[in-house]
Structures are given as C-alpha cells and as structure tokens.
C-alpha cells in the first residue's frame, strides 16, 4: 500500500510538472503576423492620423500616415495651396489659384464655400475650438465665422509687414513683423495665461519669421524661411511656455511643418529625390533613442509623390 501511494504521488506530481510556460514556437503565419503587429505598434509613425495634404494640386485626407488616403478633389490643373484642417476634422480650407479660401467637406470633398471676399492671404488657420477661419492679409487678421477677440498687429508705418500670425484658443497669440527700415523680423508674443506681452528679436541667437501654435498647451513652433531653398529651413518647438528649444530640426527645407507634442513627430512636405513627398521625423527619444543626428527616425510617404509642392495640415 505504501508503494501504491508513492507511485500515485509521483504520477500526480508528473501532471503538475508537465504544465509549463506556453511554447514560444508558432506557425509561420502566426509568427509573421505577431512580428508585424509588434513592429507596427512600436512605430511612432503608425500613430499619426488625421491630416490633409495637397498632392499634385488635389486634396487628400489621410486617416493614418500609413493608410490609403481619400482623394477629395479631382482638379489637378487648378492650383491649390495652404491647406488647413478644422479642429473637428470635418472641414478643410485651402487657397485656390486666385488666392481665395475654399472650404470643403472632409468626408466627400463637397465645396461648402468659396470666400471671394478674402484674398492675398499670407497665413490662415482654423481656431482650435470652433469653426472660425482666421486669415492674415495685408497686416490685418480677418475672420470667417464667429469673430474672436484678439490683439491686432500693431502697424506704425504703411510699409511695416506682418509676415506670420498664429493663435490658440486660450488667449495666446504671436506674429512676426518687419518694421519699416528694419532688416529683421521681430516676434510680438502675447499670452493671457502667462501674462506675457513681449517682443523678441531672436530666439537663442537665431532669426525666425514664422509662428504656429499647434495646440492649446502653451506650445508653439517657430520657423525661419529660407528664400534660396523656398521652404522653412529651420524649425524650433517651444513647449509649455518654456522659451527654450524643446525640439528643433533643420535637415532640409520644409513646407508647412506641423508638430504634435504628444507623438513628438514633425510632419512636412519636402523634396526627396527630385519629387515632393510627405515626410515625418520623430524628434522624441522614448520610442527611439537615436544615436545622433544621422540616426533620427524618419518616415517618407513613398506612395504619394507630387510634382508640385506638398502642403499639409495635421489635427491628430
């Protein structure tokens, strides 16, 4: 009987001992599927979604950077520039060949409005909390839609030039202006949140002439336009009202650079191999700790090149 107990105990223990971790081996299809899924989920560019772009003079909407975009217009012979996506991702505004803003629906490209009352637009964008389009034209900020209370650029001389204007929805605004007789453009920055009302000649010793508030968190992007390269040559991102370059990028001329602070990705149009392409640059370190300038993680959208400059706008 004792022998019986010993043998039965061993057989029972064997059942327990036989249970171990799950096998690491998979079928070929399962292994490839899992590998692709893990790589995709780790790729910061896979998280980029909801941006509009003008490619070959037609408007496209990308639900994801790596997805097939929806073509919203079919008029490649009609010039289109300066595309902007509304905060609710339901409307797109762009400038037509005559320089008038055209507003279309994001879901089907239907033209909603052509704003012939506005022209010679230097910069425009949607407000971040409502369907109001603000446009810088001839040193004045105009609105289409509900008016927003702002501090209009101060003009002291008829030949003063406001080159860039941007604002967020929490009372921050900024514009670059070149005063008559002054070679440089200065940033006039106002923040209701931080109680700042200052003018800056340069930032960290460099000169800039473009500003874009990319969210409502005290973050904005400044750029310096390179006339020789016909694009923005350098971009600096300021985070949380901390006037220090949290991110910067100057590898190549950029058209309509757009930054998302959560993903730490800069998206823009640029020339690659003699054609215009959409390019993303990961400027963070958590997903990919780059080993230097030439090891920065980038993603070029190869499937949608353009013979004309690419304009884009991104509302994640």
């Amino acid at each position: 009987m004792r022998a019986l107990k010993i043998v039965v105990s061993i057989l029972i223990l064997s059942l327990v001992n036989g249970c171990t971790d799950e096998s690491p081996f998979l079928s070929k299809a399962e292994a490839y599927e899992l590998s692709n899924e893990l790589n995709l989920n780790r790729d910061p560019f896979h998280k980029v979604k909801n941006f509009a772009a003008i490619i070959n003079n037609d408007v496209y909407y990308f639900h994801r950077l790596d997805s097939v975009p929806k073509r919203l217009t079919n008029s490649p012979s009609a010039v289109k520039t300066n595309i902007k996506l509304s905060f609710d991702k339901k409307q797109i505004a762009y400038l037509n060949g005559a320089g008038h803003p055209v507003i279309i629906r994001t879901d089907n490209g239907q033209i909603l409005q052509t704003l012939t009352q506005f022209s010679f637009i230097d910069q425009m964008d949607w407000a971040k909390d409502r369907l109001t389009l603000y446009m810088l034209s001839d040193n004045v900020v105009n609105f289409y839609g509900e008016s927003i209370e702002i501090i209009q650029p101060v003009i002291n001389h008829p030949w003063d030039e406001v080159k860039s204007f941007s604002m967020n929805s929490i009372g921050d605004q900024g514009y670059y202006k070149r005063n008559y007789g002054d070679f440089f453009k200065r940033l006039k920055y106002h923040s209701t949140v931080k109680g700042i009302d200052e003018e800056y000649l340069n930032f960290e010793g460099d000169l800039y002439d473009y500003i874009d508030f990319y969210d409502n968190n005290g973050n904005f992007l400044i750029g310096s336009y390179d006339a020789f390269q016909d694009g923005i040559g350098k971009v600096v991102c300021v985070q949380n009202y901390d006037f220090f370059p949290a991110y910067e990028w100057d590898a190549e001329p950029m058209n309509t650079p757009e930054f998302n602070a959560e993903l730490e990705i800069l998206l823009y149009g640029t020339m690659e191999e003699n054609v215009h392409k959409i390019k993303g640059v990961y400027l963070g370190t958590s997903a990919y700790p780059s080993q230097g300038y030439y090891d920065i993680l980038t993603n070029v959208v190869e499937d949608y090149p353009s013979t004309t400059p690419i304009y884009l706008d991104w509302v994640q």
């Binding site: 070929k28 292994a31 490839y32 590998s35 780790r42 790729d43 997903a287």
Partner: peptide, 17 residues
C-alpha cells in the same frame, strides 16, 4: 521540419522572425 518564433531585440523595428 522548421519551427518559428518571434525574436524581440527591442525598439522600433526590433521584432523579427
């Protein structure tokens, strides 16, 4: 004849077969 498994070296693009 051949068994397959996933190799993870970490980081972006670090998963292989």
């Amino acid at each position: 004849d051949t068994l397959y498994y996933v190799v993870d070296r970490g980081g972006v693009g670090g998963v292989g077969i």
